[in-house]
Write a protein that binds this DNA or RNA. Structure first.
Lengths: 340, 340
DNA sequence: TTGAAAGCGCTAACAA
DNA sequence: TTGTTAGCGCTTTCAA
């Protein structure tokens, strides 16, 4: 259907070799010939056949991203922003972005294998690292280029970008203790996720040093959805002595927790303090606006992609492991302890 | 690096043709030979080189999806769910999913051209159709397979899935009028989007027949973000005689509108009614839970993908144009008009 | 400065 | 049932 270099060669009367070189802008082609060929290519509406090119160079010029989805209703503003960050950088660098969505487990690992073995992508972005992460183990054993969003619990050396969640939670702890809170609860995210560990540990450690040890009875685990935050918060609020503050490990669950509190007639920020983590755009326009730890998701996506492309090209990384230090955005969902 | 059919051929002592046929499970191969070859392939860890296969068949087994993003902070739960719907069906059918993110405009159209001309994908999913949609015009002119999420204003025949937004808004209109509302405002989405037209027109038309004509002064346009809903609602609430109900054209803006009302001390569902559209998971766990028109985003994604793959394979579509009829989920964000 | 030729891994006519 | 051969479109030695 569309023109090939062969067609162009026929038209201009040169060999396909010369055409190929002219179009790749090699400098061993007579300028006049080159100009003629390039002009003709435009006239004929030539577009290189990428499948042929990729095959012959055995490079896909594609990076892969497998999103861990839980259940069909995968409604997560976090990932759409990350995707935009990765995708825009990929496009900027002339790379395609191949996306898969799989629930963690065997099928997911299989998807990784397919990406690698089928040469579907030149490198992979691994998101939301887990304890004993089999994806990372696999990619390392296959010696396949990848960059992770998150660290791991194993002593493995690989490139990653992560945010210092422990530090972020430290800021939350300080803020709440300063506001007089002593009975602090936590709705954490699934414990098999690395960032859950960092955040919860960070919270626990900082509270300890502030002499307000975290009551282990007041820790709940949710699945990161708003619904889950709602349910876990309800459990906490049902306790005989309910907490004066709930530290939630992601914004979505924090919204759910706010709803739960509000359903009981509590004024969030006055009767109870609730904090989040991520600072998704919605956080500044909820009611009340959410106190939360910021995480530059879009930029992280960009960085991941940029680093990965360097890896793929065999270029050296100026920084192989990046740990970002977050800030705390204090808004109206948190305030002085009541009667404090 | 990895084994090829040539390697297998050498090992088993058959020709590469026979190996190729055995691995493709053709039935003109001796069962014993076939078994031997397949066994050997497994032993050798053979994985077909997709780039080679795709090149030779000149089919990418890939479908493309270009997400329209506005600005860097692309935090949209709607699209992540759609992506999951499309992606899971694609995986299920053995197709890859190529994703790009572009702001509407020239670069976006260029991305479409790249997909088409570079044979990057066998077919495209076009989301969020617009008035005079140049993407659709282009794909039609290029005779490239595509399926759209949404209709168009031009009299063009192409496969699509859409939800009957006018009907959905009719339900909202009925609900509000029944609750005694007469001063109804609307926060619409950008008027160049087809679904905005359908929803606003549907609202206007149904209100008309209910003898509660929509006051054109009470129509505002937002950009679909929570922030925008917040801002537009504030404008409406600043009017000398503020509306008793605000019909918002998507859930995210509805959340923003709720925040704006709540900031003024209004109780949403009592002092003012607010409705949304989409029924994203968050809608049932906001405070108060949001009355909204449901839209099965995940299923729509699946359908789009399934239809597209049929198109790509040259199979007939049993239904070329699908228009889904929505329902209204009445929750606590809407109620009887105050003092009504 | 240009061209001939080989080959990337695979599939599919056609022949045996 | 199996093998021979050609070729997909492109890049890249090597030779002229």
């Amino acid at each position: 259907m569309s023109a090939t270099i062969k067609d162009i060669a026929k038209r201009v009367g040169f060999s396909i070799t010369t055409v190929s070189r002219a179009l790749s802008n090699h400098d061993d082609v007579n300028p006049k010939t080159k100009a003629l060929i390039q002009q003709t290519a435009i006239e004929m509406g030539y577009a290189p056949n990428l499948m042929a090119r990729r095959f012959q160079k055995s490079k896909s010029d594609t990076i892969g991203l497998i999103l861990p989805t839980f259940g069909p209703r995968f409604s997560d503003p976090f990932f759409s922003e990350l995707l935009a960050g990765v995708g825009n950088m990929a496009a900027h660098q002339g790379y395609d972005l191949l996306v898969s969505t799989r629930a963690p487990g065997n099928e997911e690992l299989h998807a990784y294998q397919q990406m690698v073995q089928g040469h579907r992508a030149d490198g992979l972005v691994v998101v939301r690292t887990r304890l004993q992460d089999e994806r990372i183990r696999y990619l390392r054993s296959a010696q396949f280029p990848f960059v992770a969003f998150g660290r791991t619990d194993e002593a493995l050396d690989f490139p990653y970008v992560d945010e210092d969640g422990a530090f972020g939670m430290g800021l939350v702890a300080e803020h709440l203790v300063e506001m007089g809170h002593r009975k602090i609860a936590c709705i954490s995210s699934p414990p098999n996720l690395m960032f859950s560990q960092h955040r919860l540990d960070g919270l626990r450690a900082r509270l300890q040093t502030l002499n307000v040890p975290l009551d282990e009875e007041l820790i709940r685990f949710g699945d990161m959805t708003q619904r889950s935050g709602y349910e876990q918060a309800n459990q906490l609020l049902d306790l005989p002595v309910s907490p004066t503050a709930i530290v939630v490990c992601n914004d979505l669950m924090a919204f759910g927790a706010m709803s739960a509190a509000q359903d009981r007639g509590l004024t969030v920020g006055k009767d109870i303090s609730i904090t989040g983590f991520d600072d998704i755009p919605m956080a500044s326009h909820s009611h009340p606006p959410l106190t939360t730890v910021d995480q530059p998701i879009y930029q992280i996506g960009s960085m991941l992609c940029e680093m990965l492309i360097k890896c793929v090209k065999g270029e050296a990384l100026e920084q192989r492991q990046v740990l970002l230090r977050p800030g705390l955005n204090i808004r109206q969902s948190s305030g002085p302890v009541k009667g404090g």
